[in-house]
Design a protein around this nucleic acid. Structure first.
Length: 261
DNA sequence: TATGGCCTGTGG
DNA sequence: CCACAGGCCATA
């Protein structure tokens, strides 16, 4: 579930399910998730949820005393909500809220992470989060400024959450395809016109995915992807076969014909 | 700037 | 059996 659109949809969904409700109990179904946070999470019991918000790819469940349960889905996390205490498959944590809301953190790979931030604590990760990809204040000159010191390939720079927050491996490829930009192009060498196109591509891609995620609430809009996971299939724009390479240990998909340097 | 690790599951 | 998977962090 894990890029900006899916996390945003998950946060909205969870908000609709638990805002105004009280946390009654927490059970851990897998050791690896909590690290040292279990005791901290217990301190949230008895508090009422004020809101659930997305910050980059994190979700913050904010309680009435402004303490925060911080959740990151990483690769395969998701929420499931039931009205009975029967765990769905791969359930790793169980949160019981008033009104018989059973919230399950479902994560086959168990890479999700949960921490607690007490009111007044400084978010230790906040300084490493760049502008949100959907922040209206992020315009092309601002994004270009973020790229200025980055000579790495643009595909890898898009995955750096301190440069721009919310984009992951799928939508980086999709956005570059929309913008007709070669994934290997050094980020700092992109002209303003290209950065503008890229920002358009990012927003188009994320908006489409958010719309999709809001209605399906799980999985990616894989049927509508232009290049990701389509190696050898024809480019939806020019018909040339989609290529695949590796950048920074991650797969990159792109069209050799319409995404030249 | 790269590499391995975290975990488990799926598909070739 | 192996390669690979929507993310991030620690380490060298």
């Amino acid at each position: 579930m894990p890029e900006l659109p899916e996390v945003e949809a998950a946060a909205r969904f969870l908000h609709s399910q638990i805002s105004g409700r009280t946390l009654l109990a927490v059970t851990w179904l897998h050791r690896s998730l909590l690290r040292n946070a279990a005791a901290d999470v217990d301190t949230l019991i008895g508090h009422r949820v004020a809101r659930v918000v997305r910050v980059a790819k994190w979700q913050e469940i904010v309680f009435d005393d402004e303490s925060v349960l911080v959740v990151h889905f990483r690769m395969t996390g998701d929420w499931a909500v039931t009205h009975r205490p029967d765990p769905p498959g791969h359930a790793r944590a169980h949160f019981v809220f008033s009104g018989a809301r059973h919230v399950w953190l479902v994560d086959p790979r168990v890479l999700s992470r949960i921490t607690v931030r007490r009111s007044g604590d400084v978010d230790p990760t906040s300084h490493r989060i760049g502008p949100d990809a959907l922040d209206p204040a992020l315009d092309a000159p601002a994004l270009r400024a973020q790229f200025a010191s980055r000579r790495a390939p643009i595909k890898q720079v898009l995955l750096d959450q301190s440069v721009i927050a919310g984009i992951g491996n799928i939508y980086a490829a999709e956005a570059l395809w929309h913008a007709r930009i070669n994934p290997w192009a050094p980020a700092q060498r992109l002209t303003l016109a290209r950065v503008r196109r890229l920002l358009d591509g990012i927003r188009w891609t994320l908006a489409l995915a958010l719309d999709e995620a809001g209605r399906h609430r799980y999985g990616t809009a894989t049927g509508r992807l232009a290049v990701y996971d389509r190696e050898g299939q024809s480019c939806r724009r020019c018909g040339a076969p989609v290529a695949r390479t590796t950048q920074g240990q991650r797969s990159t998909y792109w069209c050799r014909r319409c995404q030249r340097s």
